[in-house]
Design a protein around this nucleic acid. Structure first.
Ligand SMILES: Cc1cn([C@H]2C[C@H](O)[C@@H](COP(=O)(O)OP(=O)(O)OP(=O)(O)O)O2)c(=O)[nH]c1=O
Length: 571
DNA sequence: GGGCGCGTTAGGC
DNA sequence: TTCCAGCCTAACGCGCCC
């Protein structure tokens, strides 16, 4: 039977997660001024980093990054952050000058009652599960080519790494690191005996493996949501319901799933069919067997986190990577024990910036700190952020899922997509005709994708990254959507609009900087969004043909090669 | 006041 | 030869328009 007790690695209880994993790097914890290294070195407690010679890694990264335009910009931004931090500190001081017990009243009057309400709304059982495939991209390639895993390798190229295997992670090579630095890392730290292998990404492969995994997981929750190719958010409550409603000897997977589909949902709540302890054991075994099945049937290993909400489950899924799982019980006590010592950065939604601000302004590093400083947090941050952080402080998230997701198109995926885009980085150039050629290629490629999905975008956006990494964007929304029907010239229109936007951006830039030569571009991107809904009534084209928003085609000389129409004579 | 459009920022995979 | 990707969502502040 499926729920048999296999006993590989872990088998961890709610509090037996790796105590190292969430520990804060004390070298940065007490310092507000950030050095070069701190700007770049991401959480070094990621899976697979244990045992790596961290100081040498940091040293090499700092050395290889020094003086680059990228780092110059990073420093510039860090300075601006510093100013913001100062102004926040100022506000806090003023508040303290005005009143000395505002914290107490703020907690008593608003925060604590709110948190209490949240606590009362918690699910009583831990049935939320996050499943995350290990080193997903590179694992897919290793499946086809096992020798890859014998040495450090990664998916990506000299410019950027998407993910790496564990041999590479030992040397500090990780996602979002430029490949050339990864290469130096491996060569130097291995004393020249090893070399980082780059593998080209292959999204067809990832999609197909992802679909295999999804199909398996769906047997345990039909309504599961794939948040990305390698991450599933699911709720196994129905499965457990069915499990416990079947008499003990007959509880095999087939019977359970059959029972699940007969949704005569009049069963008593889970907590009444079994004890919390029993549920916990069954859940842990279930997750074990699910992961084992995924591995057997796809060759991929994955990690899982189980908790009473997705916020906690997501963190838990990362605690025992790779190929492990963590269960966090539903009680207030268990949640607090799990969350308190963790860095706030562990929480999905708290990124580099928020982490930095919390530490620099309030000295908040862990979730426990966050709770202790909840009044200050509530005062200092914008309402939405403050609310979010308060929820984080007690580990509460509303993830009622079950969203109907009425995605018009019965079509498989593409459910409610908000936008589609394409972008390309290249050797920086300020040659107008070159930029136009690149832009045209990006736009036409995107047009194909848009058409194949049957999307009808109303707004077109341009993205320009300058050589100094500054980002500029410009959009244009039209009354009438593009790509309404095949062969309506929309591809050309898309190209024309993109070029027009580029011309606008350049004009504005030159205007502002009085600097024609400074328009050195390293990336161009085109984005389509604001899709017309399937059945939506369309305003008559006659009604709007004079609208100033819509690009006038006759001004763009459609059909002419870019280099000679929009091209060359830009301003 | 709300809704929309635009430019930017933060965050995640 | 190389010197920091490419794709996606959400939110906010602002101006503009009913
Ligand atoms: C973080 C990250 C991931 N990816 C891709 C490659 C990853 O394999 C895939 C899933 O991301 P993750 O789940 O974040 O990472 P991972 O699966 O590679 O490794 P881990 O075992 O530590 O979870 O998304 C990027 O393209 N860019 C990124 O910045």
């Amino acid at each position: 039977m499926m729920l048999a007790n296999d006993q590989d690695e872990e088998g961890l209880g709610s509090t037996a997660y790796n105590a190292e994993a969430g520990r804060v790097d004390v070298r940065f914890a007490d310092s507000i001024s950030l050095k070069t290294t701190a700007l770049v070195i991401a959480a070094s407690d990621k899976a697979g980093m244990k045992g790596a010679p961290r100081d040498r890694i940091n040293e090499i990264i700092a050395r290889e990054s020094k003086g680059s335009l990228f780092m110059q910009r990073a420093h510039h931004l860090a300075e601006k952050d510093g100013e913001k931090i100062q102004s926040l500190l100022q506000r806090l001081n003023e508040k303290d000058d005005q009143s000395d017990n505002w914290r107490v009243s703020m907690c008593e009057d608003t925060i604590d009652p709110q948190l209490e309400r949240y606590r009362s709304q918690r699910k009583k059982v831990s049935t939320r599960v996050v499943v995350d495939l290990d080193s997903f991209f590179i694992s897919c390639h290793i499946l086809d080519n096992p020798e890859l895993d014998e040495s450090p390798c990664c998916v990506g190229g000299p410019k950027m790494i998407s993910t790496s295997n564990y041999k590479a992670r030992r040397y500090g090579v990780r996602a979002a690191m430029p490949g050339f630095i990864g290469q130096v890392l491996v060569k130097e730290l291995s004393g020249g005996s090893e070399c980082l292998t780059f593998v080209k990404s292959d999204f067809k492969l990832y999609h197909s493996k992802s679909a295999e995994v999804k199909a398996i997981l769906q047997e345990y929750d039909k309504t599961l949501k794939m948040c990305s190719l390698d991450e599933a958010y699911m709720d196994i409550e129905s499965y457990l319901d069915a499990y416990f409603s079947i008499t003990e000897g007959d509880r095999d997977h087939a019977a359970i799933t059959k029972r699940m589909s007969n949704s005569d949902d009049d069963r008593p709540p889970l907590q009444e069919m079994a004890s919390i302890l029993e549920i916990k054991e069954v859940t842990k075994n279930l997750l074990h067997s699910i992961r084992k099945r995924v591995h057997r049937e796809t060759g991929l290993t994955c990690s899982a986190g189980t908790a009473s909400n997705f916020m906690i489950a997501k963190i838990a899924s990362d605690m025992n990577k790779p190929n492990g799982q963590v269960f966090v019980g539903p009680s207030e006590e268990e949640i607090r024990t799990f969350l308190s010592p963790l860095s706030v950065r562990k929480v999905c939604g708290v990124g580099r910036i928020l982490e930095k601000f919390l530490r620099a302004t309030l000295g908040v590093v862990t979730v426990a700190d966050l709770y202790a400083k909840r009044a200050e947090v509530n005062f200092l941050f914008k309402p939405a952020t403050a609310q979010f952080l308060l929820r984080v402080s007690i580990g509460y998230s509303e993830d009622s899922r079950r969203e109907s997701e009425g995605g018009e198109r019965g079509d498989d995926e593409s459910a409610q997509r908000k936008g589609m885009s394409g972008e390309r980085t290249f050797q920086p150039t300020d040659t107008w005709s070159d930029l136009c050629v690149k832009l045209e290629s990006i736009a036409t490629r995107l047009a194909k994708d848009i058409q194949s999905k049957g999307l009808k975008p109303r707004t077109i956006g341009l993205k320009v990254k300058l050589a100094n990494f500054n980002l500029l964007t410009r959009t244009n929304t039209r009354q009438v959507a593009l790509f309404q029907q095949a062969g309506d010239g929309s591809t050309q229109t898309l190209v024309d609009i993109a070029v027009k936007l580029l011309r606008d951006v350049k004009r504005a830039f030159v205007e502002e900087h009085k600097d024609k030569a400074g328009f050195m571009v390293r990336l161009l991107g085109v984005r389509c969004s604001n899709f017309r809904l399937e059945r939506e009534t369309q305003p008559s084209i006659l009604q709007f043909q004079k609208n100033a928003c819509d690009v006038q085609l006759d001004q763009l000389e459609p059909g002419h090669p870019l280099e000679t129409s929009a091209g060359l004579s830009s301003t």
